[in-house]
Design a protein around this nucleic acid. Structure first.
Lengths: 164, 164
DNA sequence: ACCGATTACTTTGAGCTTCAAGCAATTCGT
DNA sequence: ACGAATTGCTTGAAGCTCAAAGTAATCGGT
């Protein structure tokens, strides 16, 4: 308990320590898991996480996606995607094709080989993730999902307020 | 409900979809917040997030820290820290001093100016984070803290099991 | 006291990432 | 139908990141 000069109980002004600790814990969890996934992908499939993530986005659709779509979904910059796609086309995992109706637009797809390769990796990946969260009960998972959804909403609100 | 060839109800084998969705949500939250903090740091203080993180580690102690300590605490590679420290010494934020008793070891400290600069940034940073989590009730925060602690433990167990 | 193992740090090479600036194609207002 | 804004993507510069290999100093067992 803290008392001010007039001997009244006061709160510490702007004590946001709990939020900060929460953020650090969230960051630690993500870094930990991300690092683990990164090593395993490298070790077993000799692929980087960004490449895997990009292929994961493309695997969700059958008919391709533009670079901008990829950029938005992966939450990385446009220039970043340009380079990643370039390397993945080079290695034969992806296929690019210019739009007929808008010559600025490129549709990116997984090649047959690329999709097969990705599916193999994704199956393993899913098991790793299940193991990573293995100590959590179904109830824990549901609750965590709910709280993270709320967190996401809150963060978006905060980001939006700034940029507005 | 899925029926197999003998018309018996079966579970999808190894359905770890919920864990995967949880992981993606966790990752989204972190990426979102990290990106937000990154822009604000750049915008208001013209500093990068890794530099800020490194200074944050050093601010916790008064008497300095070795490169290895920094590397462990920040969960990044040794070589990475070498470069970061180099640039921060260059810019006058840090101070390096070789150990008397072990000439391999370097003690890194914030300079007076570096600490002052960091404190200013940290105060703002704390407010941003409070705002980011602003929609969560105190109870939400407690619960999220608890579940993330459990997640961290689980992830560490999983990582350890592999490397063993 | 020596030699092998370990520890602290640096270097290197490849890849990832961002921001900002730039180019080309399209869309929109008038 | 013209020019201005917008959109989709690429480029360039700086910085971050890692894994692996390298160097130097210390520690430990004999």
């Amino acid at each position: 308990m803290i008392l001010d000069s007039e001997t009244k109980a006061v709160e510490l002004p702007d004590d946001h320590g709990t939020e900060l600790r929460l953020w650090l814990r969230l960051l630690t969890c993500t870094t930990l898991i991300e690092g683990e996934v990164r090593s395993r992908l490298r070790e077993k499939f000799d692929v980087t996480l960004p490449r895997f993530d990009l292929m994961a986005q493309l695997d969700k659709v059958s008919d391709g996606m533009t670079l901008s779509d990829l950029s938005k979904r992966m939450m990385v910059s446009n220039g970043n995607v340009t380079g990643l796609v370039e390397r993945l086309v080079e290695s034969g995992h992806l296929d690019r094709r210019t739009s007929e109706t808008d010559r600025r637009v490129q549709f990116i797809r997984l090649t047959k080989a690329g999709r097969a390769e990705f599916r193999k990796m994704a199956a393993e990946h899913e098991k790793w993730i299940a193991d990573v969260f293995g100590d959590l009960s179904p109830k824990d998972i549901r609750e965590l999902m709910r709280l993270l959804a709320k967190t996401k909403g809150s963060a978006q609100r905060s980001a939006k307020a700034r940029s507005a």
